[in-house]
Structures are given as C-alpha cells and as structure tokens.
Amino acid sequence: MADEEDIVLSELSDDELVLQMHDDLYDGLKEEIEEGTEILLARGWVPYKVLTEALVEGMRVVGEDFRDGILFVPEVLLSANAMKAGMFILRPLLAATGAPKQGTMVIGTVKGDIHDIGKNLVGMMMEGAGFEVIDLGINNPVEDYLAAIEEHKPEILGMSALLTTTMPYMKVVIDTLKEKGIRDDLIVLVGGAPLNEEFGSAIGADAYCRDAAVAVETARELVNRKHNQMATA
C-alpha cells in the first residue's frame, strides 16, 4: 500500500504532472520521468509537447541552478540521466510524428581529449531543442570532423575540450575548414571548462558557450540569423 505522502503520478492532472516531472528531473528520478512520459503520451500528448514542456523546461531550471552554483555536477548528471531515459522513449516517436527540426549539429571532443560530460550535456539539450545531433564521441582528429561534415551537411559544428593541452586543437580544425573553403558554411561553437570568450574569438569560432543552455540559445540565434541572411541575400 502506498504511503500517504507518496504522489501517484497517474492521478495528477496534466499541469500538475508536468510540474511534478520538473521536480523529478531536478531530483534526478529516472523511473519517475519514464513513468510521467508514458502517462502524458497515453493521455494523447504529442511527443514534441512532452519533450519541450515536461523535459526540456525541467532541464532548463537544472541548467540555471547549475550556472548559479545551486546545483553541482553530480546533481546535473543525475538530472541528465533522467532526461535521457525520457528521451529514449520519445526519440522514435518524435521522428515518426514529424517534430519540427531546427537543424543539424556535428559535435565531438577534440583529438587527445577523452572528456565528454559537457559535450554529452550539450548534445542532449540540443536534441531536446529540436536539433539532430551527430555525436562523434571523444578524441577526434580533424579528419573525423571533415568526414561528418561531408556526410551530414550540418549547420553547426561543436567542439569540446577539457584540457588546456588539447584546446588549441580546435584552431587546427577551424584552420582546416578555412583551407577547405567551408568555414563560412558552418556555425562553429566551442566549449569546455578551460575555455573562455577570448579564446573562442582568437581561434575563429563563432561563439564560446559556457554551458549547455547557452549552447542551445546561441545555436538557435545563429541559425535564425543565418536563415534570415540567406532569405535576404
């Protein structure tokens, strides 16, 4: 028998359930997020609405509190795990129901670096924001980026590094894009703990993104700007 204090998700109204899912995401409760996602789908919510209103909005709060020093990396990872579980249910349904697409991003950690926590968070939030994300994983030489750009024709290239010894490799990639004459076809976003805006502009990136939420905002803004430029060209 359920404890009096236990919340039965299926008994909540839609609005209450969405708010409860925001709380559950904040607390990193993976099973509750899976259950909430299934309930909303069973009630006829389209997958895109579940994704944006229940999951992405919940993660937005997590991201803000991380930025403000209220949450720390372990809590963010637990929240991300919970969101991933919800997205695992939604991903095939999103494709089948023709959810709006914002664009495509190729993302990877640069050569010599195997750190991927930040990159994975960015990838997840970008996917949540409606971008198709091609994740190249870790330790990527420039050839990997070029091959993925050739194959997937992304609007955005994202590069991540955690080490001061590996972050200069981002410039190698950007310089190679210039040599190949494809630099201006792409929006290049860079991120990672030791980076800053100064470094991002020095290597010729379009923007440095300090966290996943900023990466999503920046990507949206720059993609829209590019579309507008193309429309008026």
Partner: peptide, 18 residues
C-alpha cells in the same frame, strides 16, 4: 566531490572513457 559515494551509478559517466 563527484558524488560517487552517494551515486556510484555515475562512475561510468565520469570515467567510462578511461
């Protein structure tokens, strides 16, 4: 500091590539 005492399930998210 990585929260692995309370959440050992996070271990592979931090160290899975090592």
């Amino acid at each position: 500091p990585l929260g692995l005492d309370k959440h050992p399930e996070l271990r592979d998210m931090y160290f899975g590539s090592y």
